[in-house]
Amino acid sequence: MKREKMHSAKTRRFINNSIVHAVLGVLAVIWVFPIVWVILTSFRAEKGSYVSTFLPKSYTIDNYIKLFTDTTILDFPQMFMNTLFIAVCSCILSTFYVLAVSYCLSRLRFKLRKPYMNMAMILGLFPGFMSMIAVYFILKALGMTEGNLIKLALILVYSGGAALGFQIAKGFFDTIPIAVDEAALLDGCTRWQIFTKITLPLSKPIVIYTTLTAFMGPWLDFIFAKVICRANSDQYTIAIGLWKMLEKEYIDNWYTCFAAGAVLISVPIAALFLYMQRYYVDGLSGAVKG
């Protein structure tokens, strides 16, 4: 009797496990499938946007070659360089801003601290690009919407609001024991030395995280870039370029190239992301625990 019961419990567990694995399997296929599809499409030899077969009939790497050699209409290498330049510059600026502001809010006590945090929360509730058109007018009044100055404009726009996103870095700084700072103060360190020589070296993960997110921003954003670049196609970033490839006049010729471009920029971003994903988890669970 007892034995039978144990046996049935075992079978039930086995059935449960099988069901769970089957469900996970189906879900995993659903989640991975579009990615596989776009990779296959990027190697598709048949031209045109929509084809009657689901999988490509023959494969080629011409799409990748065309992406880098056919620069007459959509200049992919140029877009790549634009984005890289903007990303590097705005990454330096915004990393400094985020870390500096987070450190101040976490470690220093001053009169504007709470007003600043409240302000950041309130500003966060406005639709992000409600002010976009206003930013455009401001940049235009400053004469920064023509030629190469567009790059500068984009750098300023991307790093402009960076200091409002301090929560994760501040949460991290909060976890460093305050005793470390106090010991350093007793030894005659200035606050600046504590920041640069103690806090930052102790916070390597968050420094890396902040740098990488800041670096990735310009690769992913396309709304601001689109509004500010308008018709200046020589200043386009990757995101606008890929968006353009899907517009009616280009889609027939460029569809497979779009897939190739998407794969190309996804690979480094995916690598960075997989590398950083643990910080996502840490950032949130830390904040909740605190």
């Binding site: 989640w31 991975v32 990615i35 992913l220 995101a239 998407a262 920029i265 996804s266 995916a270 997989l274």
Partner: peptide, 9 residues
Amino acid sequence: LSCAVPMFV
């Protein structure tokens, strides 16, 4: 893997 691909892509 799927959130490693840029969202707009």
